[in-house]
């Protein structure tokens, strides 16, 4: 394991080009180890996603994963983006309040977000505006509760008798 993984500095040119591409959108730029981190409000999500994908200097055509982290007071949606032409990576983090778990669906930008959003809805209860088909994906019909949340406790003794 080379030490490049540990404290790689984001290439200055990449940092500058990202700043130029997303200018005008209020957000916080930072870095977490070797990935450029963007924290922003959820209303700018679709806009920033489109800009980062279409611009050729950032070229974020590959949505790697969409994760939801439950921080109990609110939830955080984390989008990991990357490109096939260079090895710089971007992480978009959005905080969503617990009483209104609603985000814009990024399917118009990356079609591969489809099932990731359905899974987030199944496990955490986050809804996505504009998603064409929000049926349960990995849990069975009639499952109660949201198992991904911290408030869902795993039972000591499972009671399922095959109805």
């Amino acid at each position: 394991m080379s030490s490049e993984d540990f404290d790689k500095h984001i290439a200055v040119e990449f940092f500058d080009s990202v700043k130029r591409v997303i200018q005008g959108i209020p957000c916080d730029l930072g870095n977490s180890r070797d990935e450029l981190e963007i924290k922003l409000d959820r209303k700018y999500l679709l806009k920033i996603a489109g800009l980062l994908k279409d611009d050729s200097s950032t070229d974020m055509k590959y949505l790697r994963s969409l994760s939801i982290v439950d921080w109990i007071e609110d939830m955080e949606a984390v989008y990991h983006l990357s490109s096939v032409n260079h090895s710089n990576r971007i992480v978009i983090k959005i905080r969503v309040p617990m009483d209104e778990l609603l985000l814009d669906s990024v399917i118009p930008v990356w079609r591969g977000a489809d099932w990731h959003e359905r899974e987030a809805n199944d496990l955490f209860g986050v809804r996505f505006r504009g998603h064409p088909n929000m049926a349960p994906l990995i849990l069975y019909d009639g499952f109660e509760g949201f198992p991904g949340r911290k408030s869902y406790e795993l039972a000591e003794q499972d009671t399922f008798y095959g109805d």
Partner: peptide, 25 residues
Amino acid sequence: LDYGVTGPILRAAGVDYDIRKADPY
């Protein structure tokens, strides 16, 4: 690439993306 497909399927479509070369570890 839009669907997020990777691995041999992506390389069969002509995109040269293998993490062992693009982002080596």
